[in-house]
Design a protein around this nucleic acid. Structure first.
Lengths: 136, 136
DNA sequence: GGTGGTTTTGACAATCATTTTCAACAAGCC
DNA sequence: GGCTTGTTGAAAATGATTGTCAAAACCACC
């Protein structure tokens, strides 16, 4: 109780957090916390699994990574641009393309107000087979 | 090996499966397997939790119910119309409205082909605050 | 370059939804 | 009624994620 204030949290920079961030950068598509943990370990960058979870969650809250929940309940993460966007993900190879859909945003808000809903958020993901995987 | 064929599965009708189906009908929005299990139990319709899970999964595969995974990894189910549609869900009370979005379907396919993707599927859910919850 | 107050780490245990196991049971059929 | 086979469900197993808490690392500030 030195300052008398409730400062949010200084956010210290550590080897582990950098490793998680860098590891994520080296991934093509979405990865789960466990996959990333394995990958770091194989690279010799030993980081505790708990820490990977915490780092990813923090990055997610800070808007530096996107996260989504797969059908089988696993949360997967990916480095992303800070603007609002959606994804087009290849079912076979996991390659991911970021999509901006202004039309969809507009539509979503229109539909919502028609039904008396406010404070709208939405999830939208596209899945398919990318060109390389189709021709292969 | 009596028939020599691989018949898919006769699908037997039982008290438990009917109870799950009826229970789901009596729900307003999405419910988790566990919530439904509790509800049935309170109604005196004792059905094992395992069975509730299995019944919901079967109904989902048969297209008779919609399921989606919440942010915290819980799968929730809801009786639905068989046509393709999306949802507008109230964050506070769970009230759910089915939405048809032909424009979105078209847009999704257009964006996909622009990027060389085929065999497209998509997930789209809207969340917000419904009128009743806002005024309350 | 040391020191202290915090934050962060990570091995392990705990939690929680869901699935598997497997013996008892019930549906539909002769 | 009896048979065959799909179904049930209690309990144990699984698997992702989170809580615990002592030890280690960070970052001013001397």
């Amino acid at each position: 109780m030195s300052t008398g204030r409730n400062e949010p949290a200084p956010a210290r920079r550590t080897r582990q957090r950098s490793a998680v961030k860098d590891g994520l950068d080296r991934c093509e598509g979405f990865v789960s916390a466990q996959e990333l943990h394995d990958r770091l370990r194989r690279d010799g960058q030993s980081v505790g699994l708990t820490t990977v979870y915490r780092a990813l969650q923090a990055l997610g809250e800070g808007g530096e990574v996107d996260s989504l929940v797969t059908d089988d309940g696993e949360t997967v993460y990916r480095r992303c641009s800070p603007e609002h966007h959606h994804h087009l993900v290849c079912r076979s190879c996991g390659r991911t393309i970021e999509i901006a859909g202004p039309a969809v945003e507009t539509w979503a808000h229109a539909v919502a107000s028609e039904n008396g809903f406010t404070d709208i958020s939405h999830t939208l993901e596209l899945f398919g087979q990318c060109g390389s995987c189709t021709s292969a």
